[in-house]
Design a protein around this nucleic acid. Structure first.
Length: 266
DNA sequence: TTTACCTTTCCTGTTT
DNA sequence: CAAACAGGAAAGGTAA
């Protein structure tokens, strides 16, 4: 069987599974889900939100228990391949003392290794999944890996779904996806009224830069982004909120932001 | 290739 | 005064 090449992970020290972030793991799982036509809906979500070290501590049995008899062995094998293939490239001495070698730091190494495109795809997927928090917790505690490692990614309680139908990448969807994925929202935006869909830009220029990055346009500004936002009023994707600077409200022609829709319970 | 749609860019004026 | 908001006008990009 030919596995998908992991475009974003190859030829990097972090290719060693131990160095994978939770996003890398997610990326890796995603590639296998695609490659094997595995039905993502039957995945145990807890194990889609673990980091590299936790993943590496899973036994074959745990792997199968987590990912099923179909995908589990695939992942197990792939993991072993990555360990042997990239393990030799690692300089473990520098790994154990990350403070050393200030001039040697590889910017790619300390930064998320997934492409923004992929990240967005995953965020959208996460948004569409209906998580079962009790299951997540139960699964996490049955794993023999250190609880801290397993639970860490789950603290940001979010759901992961693997490759549902990709949704468009329009501005309002980009904004929505920042709002509903706290792990990618570093104080950029916040909900003013979660139920009503009222939200606010906290770092308007930063969001504009991110939007520009996504559109390969480094000269994007909030000024220009906001013009596009205003066009949404007529189409009722957004509703006006007047008198409140940097505040907008999702309208009836928007979707994917309600708590029920993204399965946050309550 | 043409078109429709979604911005992006620029601008003038108003409001906070 | 600076930063946002408002929209009109027109150009740009892209996917069908």
């Amino acid at each position: 069987h030919t596995f998908h090449t992991l475009q974003n992970i190859k030829l990097n020290p972090a290719s060693f599974p131990h160095c994978w972030t939770a996003d890398n793991v997610l990326d890796w799982i995603s590639d296998h889900v695609e490659g094997t036509k595995f039905d993502a809906s039957t995945l145990n979500l807890a194990y889609c939100a673990i980091d590299g070290p936790a993943l590496c501590q899973m036994s074959r049995e745990q792997m199968i228990g987590a990912f099923g008899t179909q995908l589990g062995p695939h992942l197990q094998q792939s993991l072993q391949e990555h360990k042997t293939k990239y393990g030799g490239m690692l300089d473990f001495s520098s790994l154990s003392s990350p403070e050393s070698g200030s001039g040697e730091s590889d910017p790619e190494f300390s930064y998320p290794l997934i492409s923004s495109e992929k990240a967005t795809k995953l965020i959208v997927c996460k948004a569409q999944f209906r998580p079962k928090i009790p299951d997540q917790l139960k699964l996490a505690t049955t794993c023999n890996a250190p609880v801290s490692n397993v639970l860490k990614p789950l603290i940001v309680p979010h759901c992961h779904c693997l490759f549902a139908a990709p949704r468009g990448t329009h501005l309002w969807e980009f904004i929505r996806d920042i709002l509903i994925s706290p792990e990618r929202n570093q104080g950029l935006m916040k909900w003013e009224d979660r139920r009503e869909g009222v939200f606010k830009f906290l770092k308007s220029e930063a969001v504009a830069q991110m939007w520009g990055q996504k559109k390969k346009n480094s000269s994007m500004t909030y000024e220009k982004l906001s013009r596009a936002m205003r066009y949404y009023y007529k189409r009722e994707i957004l509703e006006r909120v007047d008198g409140r600077r940097l505040v907008y409200k999702f309208g009836k022609n928007s979707s994917g932001w309600k708590m029920e829709e993204i399965g946050m319970g309550m």
